[in-house]
Design a protein around this nucleic acid. Structure first.
Lengths: 345, 345
DNA sequence: CTGAAAGCGCTTACAG
DNA sequence: CTGAAAGCGCTTACAG
């Protein structure tokens, strides 16, 4: 490969001068600089990464770690991941940083795969963890041991070591219920996740739902209008049609904690003889659904995921460059998007 | 940071012995080895990446480059990318290789972003290019100049420098038409992409469509039953309803070159008074659509994308390790999946 | 403005 | 079985 020495030989200078030119130092005679640049161009020289890193200790690479599996049909999580990645990528481009994409395996047993290896080997300057599940214990320990920064997206870890960016899911849900009420709906149900599934975002949405109804002094217990399912909405259809029979007053609106739960919700209502949006309005969360694939344009809440990714990366860069050593946190607001699935009552 | 020297000091040996233990060399006394391992464990030592790279010239990192933008609502391309990535990731895991995710900008002007920098800096041992658009000229030149391997997924570059894996889109389309004919359909239309959009896969599907109909000696010109649109199916609805009026005999089946074109196709037919699948059957391509979001379960063709990703990575690793210097190519078959949208006529 | 020396952390021969 | 020497490509003081 072409090294500084080769360039130096061709330009008739020492390799130190080449280094100076490469790094844009000013104390080089204009004429010398030209000779060196010509030689660089002729030989197609580019500074060797490893040589630079060994000196500087900085590798201009960050790791993106996430428990979200790349391979899955669950579009919601995929789209979430990709939009966040798009934001991170934009910041990385602007700073000439590369991203190593890694994933935290769902189960750690029977695998020798070590997702923290790049981190331990100092192959990355820092980590962005895209939440969904809590940061694993072993990762927290490594972060503590090595002194390199980590920013979390989509969760609010309590450790003072970790910076994070997140959306205000509680407020988003709270505001959503208020909006729905402004449309004249009195009884509102919530579709959430089973409590065995850890997802702080969804549980915050649930809390926002409950609080908003309490504050509105509704005549029913909000908890009685919560139905829980899993990410794939397994059994949701039946649960809903059963609930419709059980409820004294059927809800005229339903707040789905994820758009991906909407289709099964609609099916469950249909099974119980209710149609959307004629009988029941629906508001979701995420805004990932391609309109053309669903008969219904869903009113929803959109998180500024790309912005969050950008911001997380920028915070990480600040930490890496030691401009900021103190933990930083940022909370983003969610945008409510009305649409056909929400009707005035 | 903890170096081999620190470990050596603690274990009371030279750092060379530490290196031997780290690299699993056998010529180390069992007792010495134990001392060293204990010291490694105590200090949390991990070999510094840059040090290793500078010696070996291998960085155990590959670049994934793609012109597919991460940020977009076009689910088809996103899902395509992610499934391929999932396959690459699996191979990478098995070989302790990291992946740097980069994207080839759509327009090169007014940006100083250099997507080939990691490659030039020898920050990666090789590249996997996930096709959609042809490899840019400047990239081909760089590949020629630096002597590092590149494997292409989803395109068949003519250069003898590049290995590739691809699906047999021609045969898949050919077979699809035969299947549709087996279901009793005589007149079959094709929805493809405008010729200004470069996409070898789609154009191969179009060729397969034409050839199958020619071989079946149909009484019409297959070309008269081709409608072209763009990735977002802009104007497709109108084109189809117009075509239905124009055609002497309306098709009883339509082969959409991408599933994502199905909804607008269905709308266009509806506009012309035809319903799917009662009046017209539809077969698509990709199999990405989440069943629950569409009223119709689409008969389609599924590419083994994850397998392709895995294979591409393995080929690349072979090149990197110099086991194989000759260009390698692999063609995967596509699986036909019948479903509700295809009816017997 | 330019160059010789030392060193970043590691591995690869070479000596013993 | 173990260690001293040299070098991978680069940058950072230091000297002139």
């Amino acid at each position: 490969m072409v090294t500084q020495k080769d360039v130096a030989d061709l330009a008739g200078v020492s390799f130190i001068t080449v280094s100076r030119v490469v790094n844009g130092e000013t104390n080089v005679k204009e004429e010398t600089k030209k000779k060196v640049l010509a030689a660089i161009d002729k030989l197609g020289y580019a500074p060797n990464f490893a040589g630079q890193v060994l000196n500087s200790g900085k590798c201009n690479t960050i790791a993106i770690l996430t428990p979200i599996p790349l391979e899955q049909s669950q579009f919601t999580r995929l789209a979430y991941l990709m939009q966040v990645l798009a934001g991170i990528e934009e910041s990385c481009r602007n700073n000439n940083i590369d991203m190593i994409l890694g994933s935290v395996p769902e189960v750690m047993h029977n695998t020798s795969y070590d997702y923290l290896r790049p981190f331990r080997q100092k192959k990355v300057d820092g980590i962005i963890y895209i939440g969904l599940k809590k940061i694993p214990k072993e990762m927290m320990e490594e972060l503590k041991k090595r002194d390199r920064p980590c920013v979390v997206i989509g969760d609010r870890p309590r450790s003072s070591l970790l910076s994070w960016v997140d959306t205000d899911n509680f407020s988003a849900a709270y505001n959503t219920i208020q909006k729905i009420q402004e449309y004249g709906h009195k009884i509102i149900a919530f579709i959430g996740l089973e409590s065995t599934i850890y997802n702080e975002n969804i549980s915050e949405r649930e809390k926002g739902f409950i609080k908003a109804l309490q504050d509105a002094n509704v005549s029913y217990a909000p908890e009685d209008y919560i139905i829980r399912t899993d990410y794939d909405a397994n059994g949701l259809c039946e649960k809903i049609s059963d609930a419709v029979k059980k409820w004294h007053h059927a809800p005229s609106a339903i707040f789905c904690s994820m758009d991906s739960l909407v289709p099964e919700t609609v099916k469950g209502l249909a099974k119980a003889g209710l149609s959307v949006p004629d009988d029941v309005s629906i508001v979701g969360f995420d805004g990932f659904i391609n309109d053309s694939y669903y008969y219904l344009k869903i009113a929803t809440n959109v998180q500024p995921l790309k912005e969050m990714g950008k911001t997380a990366a920028e915070i990480l860069f600040n930490h890496i460059n030691n401009k900021v050593t103190k933990k930083q946190t940022e909370i983003f607001q969610v945008e409510f998007v009305p649409n056909d699935s929400l009707r005035k009552k």
